[in-house]
Amino acid sequence: MDQMKEAYERLGLPEDATREQLDDRYTLLMRQTRSHQRREPDRAEEIEAEFAETTKAYKFILEEENRKSLEEMNQKRYGKYKKFAGTAEKTDHFFRYYKFHVLGGIALVGLLVYIVISIFNHQAEKERLASLPPVDLEVMFLGSYMNQDAGQDLKPIEDAILAQFPEWKRVTVTLNYVPPLDSSNPQDAVMLQKALLVLTTERPDLYIMDQNAFNWVGNQGMVRPLEPEVEGELKDMLTPEMLLKGKNEEDGSEHVFAIDIMNSKLSEELPLLKKEMFAGIRGDTKRNANALHFIKQYLETTP
């Protein structure tokens, strides 16, 4: 059995499946995996390892599609030469090589230098991380969130959260952009695929989502139901409008999966461009207490 057939069988799809069917199937398998991990937390790592093989198959198919697209492009470019197409392609590549071989040599040297520097930087980064205190909370902002200065540095956001929780020593933040779900822009489709892959590899304790992101993954087992807290210690701080509900895909029952914290005074202190902030807790997090403490403190500063 060839590798491509095995990849499609791993995803439970025929080899003539469309790209849309492929993406939809992978999304469904991801939801099912998160649901299984929530039901069987003692097997979470084993289930995650099994899903890693699914991700590997998904990536293999995508890479194969890209290769075929490249072959089709070459066919269009050299097909006019008919039986001499291969010779024409090789000749073209030959002249390209000798035209740019000097630049290629320089680029190769630059690449080697980059690799050496990266190795040293990676080692230095490992030593730096080893010297840091343990992480108190991992937060993923999922949606159309951006730094106020439109930069990539997340440290100002992490520092702002640490200032709000002085008892914590370390917080890590991820910004995972989710484009509009109804967009027909091909670039947005690529960004959505990227966001999906980040979701399968990153395991934050707390998700802060906008409405668009919640509609995408909010009730798919990624975050856990919050009824115990909503009906318990958070009850006096909430109004019905602050509860974001969804239906459990397994039995169709309705649950509260996220809480609106946008109107909190603390949210105003975060250096983010934002409109909506709905907080949900990852189902299998080991820092559940800190994630809940975050939500509670934000609610306590909501007018």
Rank of each mutant, 00 (worst) to 15 (best):
Q193M: 07
G252A: 06
A279L: 01
K59Q: 08
E48A: 11
I161D: 00
Y81K: 11
E45C: 10
E89M: 12
A52M: 05
R25I: 00
D24N: 15
K82E: 10
I47A: 01
K296V: 11
L243H: 13
T201M: 14
P41H: 12
L29Y: 00
Q21N: 04
S183R: 03
D42G: 03
E227R: 04
K68C: 03
D205N: 12
R43C: 07
P41C: 06
G283W: 08
I208N: 02
F100K: 11
V230T: 07
A130H: 05
K296C: 00
T27G: 02
V171M: 06
A279N: 06
E250A: 08
N263G: 12
N219K: 13
E125D: 14
I281K: 06
S144H: 04
S253E: 14
T54D: 02
S144D: 06
R10W: 03
L154H: 04
Q3R: 12
Q164G: 09
K80C: 11
L196W: 06
D188N: 08
A189I: 00
K275D: 14
N288D: 15
V178N: 07
K247C: 10
L238D: 12
S69E: 15
D16V: 12
D205H: 06
K247W: 11
L112Q: 09
E50D: 09
Q123E: 12
L129Q: 13
A289K: 08
Q32S: 12
D136E: 07
H101F: 15
T27K: 05
A163S: 11
N185R: 06
M146N: 14
T87D: 15
Q211A: 13
D149P: 03
I295H: 03
L266A: 12
Y114S: 10
D23G: 06
P133G: 11
R38K: 04
E9F: 10
E6S: 09
Q148N: 09
D2C: 03
E63G: 01
Q211F: 08
Y207P: 05
V178M: 03
D236A: 07
V135I: 01
M4C: 05
S69P: 06
G246A: 06
R19G: 09
P204G: 07
Y26W: 11
A49N: 04
V198H: 14
E227A: 01
L234R: 09
A213H: 01
V198G: 14
G79P: 03
M1E: 14
A124S: 14
K169L: 08
L142A: 04
D23E: 05
L266R: 12
R128C: 04
D42L: 14
A160E: 04
Q3F: 04
D159Y: 08
F294D: 01
V102F: 15
A279M: 10
H255N: 04
R67G: 02
N147S: 13
E254D: 10
A85L: 08
M30P: 05
S183K: 00
E65F: 07
R43I: 06
T18G: 10
R203W: 14
Q3G: 00
D159C: 00
F100E: 12
W216P: 02
N176A: 07
Y145N: 00
L103F: 15
Y114L: 13
T285R: 00
S264A: 04
N74E: 14
E6H: 11
N290C: 05
E46S: 05
T239K: 15
W216V: 01
F278W: 11
H36S: 14
F84K: 15
T239D: 13
E167P: 00
Q297S: 02
P134K: 04
A279R: 02
M242R: 13
E89R: 09
T239V: 13
